[in-house]
Simulated scan of single mutants.
Amino acid sequence: MSTDTDHIDELERALAALRAQAPRLARWGRSLAERLTDGARLLAAGNGGSAAEAQHLTAELVGRFDGDRRPFSAVALHADTSSLTAIGNDYGYEEVFARQVTAHARPRDVVALLSTSGRSENLLRAAQAGREAGATVWALTGALPNPLAELADEIVAVPGTTATVQEAQLVAVHMLCGAFEAALSTEDKAVGRRAS
């Protein structure tokens, strides 16, 4: 029987797993700051709630997370509805992200894929397309093992229900953005202040 606090208890377990992976998220933030400052881009995708978190991540990079600074190139692949629906119609939903990754990803870019199950075929194909393009593939997933984790270059995985994993993904996105902004040079931050 479920109690009023079962969800909170499960979220605490997920956050404890995320805390153990905090050094990886900090490293991702530093790497992303270096890459995006040098002209690379982040391509992000997910399905459902994970799509919302992927789009949250790109919004924080193009806009701002905590402080003024210049904008950086980050694209949520599921947000381009014309491409998404045309590719889905012509090639099947399994290809909606992979075809966009093939079109846009270059070496030094990062393809960030968010999934609670790690089993969505459209994300698995996007991971493969990212690797073929020479991009780095990062995955934020639910519990291991899962196929997406096996295809990604690096992963952050947390256990839990779909809802709990999505909640932990939001925390992970904010941790990544915090590390990203902390790693930016004083010059990059000054550019943002001059623009505002």
Rank of each mutant, 00 (worst) to 15 (best):
M1T: 13
T3W: 01
T5K: 13
D6L: 13
H7K: 12
I8A: 15
I8G: 14
I8N: 11
L11W: 10
L11M: 14
E12A: 15
E12S: 14
L15F: 14
A16R: 15
A16M: 08
R19P: 04
R19Q: 14
A20F: 09
Q21A: 10
P23S: 09
A26G: 01
R27Y: 06
R27M: 12
S31P: 00
T37G: 14
D38S: 15
G39Q: 04
A40D: 10
R41P: 02
L42Y: 02
L43P: 04
A45P: 00
G46F: 04
S50T: 02
A52M: 11
A54G: 07
H56D: 08
L57Y: 00
A59Y: 06
E60N: 06
L61T: 10
L61I: 15
L61W: 12
V62M: 12
R64T: 04
D66K: 14
R70A: 12
S73T: 13
S73C: 05
A76I: 03
A79Y: 01
S82E: 09
S83P: 04
G88D: 08
D90H: 04
Y93F: 15
E94P: 00
A98R: 03
R99K: 15
R99G: 07
Q100K: 01
Q100V: 06
Q100G: 01
Q100M: 08
T102H: 14
A103D: 11
D109P: 02
V110D: 00
A112Y: 00
S115A: 11
E121I: 07
E121H: 01
G134R: 10
W138L: 15
T141N: 12
T141Y: 11
G142T: 11
G142C: 04
P147V: 06
A152G: 09
A152L: 05
A152T: 08
A152H: 08
E154R: 04
I155L: 12
P159Y: 08
G160F: 05
T162Q: 11
T162N: 07
V165H: 10
E167F: 06
V171N: 01
V171H: 05
M175P: 00
L176W: 12
C177S: 10
A183I: 01
A190N: 04
G192S: 00
R193L: 03
A195W: 13
A195C: 09
